[in-house]
């Protein structure tokens, strides 16, 4: 794979991997550095990429594995896809409301089985196609749809319960 092909086919996949890397790692600065490291890693593997049957899948798996490696080295800032932060009393009303909502959903996500939580995050937060989720997780598309449906229904019903008291 030459520089031009890499620029045209691999570099635009930054749009795909960025939300996932940000969700997994947290801070924007870390995300930019991590995405850069991933792209440089892919650049060094460009010969392998040119013959790979599923380039997007390969890029997603490389990005995900890189994030896992980074998370092993440090304490995660995000837990279950939500930043671990306390409420600052100086925040405005909307911000406090948002943080409360964030905390509620974080709690709800914790109640989901792990594979449902991962599939939900990869689809709704990272915006990946089913085929891409299948490559990243090693699950079949039909199974992913089932897991996603269960997770969405569970979250929806719990949120309805929660907001019916208001």
């Amino acid at each position: 794979m030459n520089s031009r092909t890499f620029k045209e086919t691999i570099l635009p996949l930054t749009q795909k991997i960025y939300p996932m890397v940000h969700r997994m790692l947290g801070e924007t600065e870390n995300t930019n550095d991590a995405v850069q490291e991933i792209m440089l890693k892919l650049w060094s593997k460009r010969k392998q990429l040119s013959t790979h049957p599923n380039v997007t899948g390969f890029v997603l798996v490389t990005a995900r594995n890189h994030c896992f490696d980074l998370l092993k080295q440090r304490k995660p800032l995000y837990v279950n896809g939500v930043k671990n932060e306390s409420v600052d009393p100086r925040n405005t009303h909307n911000e406090i409301e948002w943080q409360e909502l964030n905390a509620i959903i974080k709690k709800l996500l914790k109640t989901l089985p792990e594979n449902q939580r991962i599939v939900l995050a990869l689809r709704d937060l990272d915006g990946l196609e089913f085929a891409e989720i299948a490559t990243a997780t090693g699950l079949k598309t039909e199974h992913i749809r089932v897991l996603l449906s269960r997770a969405r229904k569970q979250i929806s019903s719990k949120l309805k319960q929660n907001y019916s008291y208001e």
Partner: peptide, 24 residues
Amino acid sequence: ALEVWSHYVSKNRHDPPPTLETSL
């Protein structure tokens, strides 16, 4: 419920900065 969830998604979804590809 979907409104709350979509609000959560929009707040937690981070798109790459427009200059990232160029700098990469």
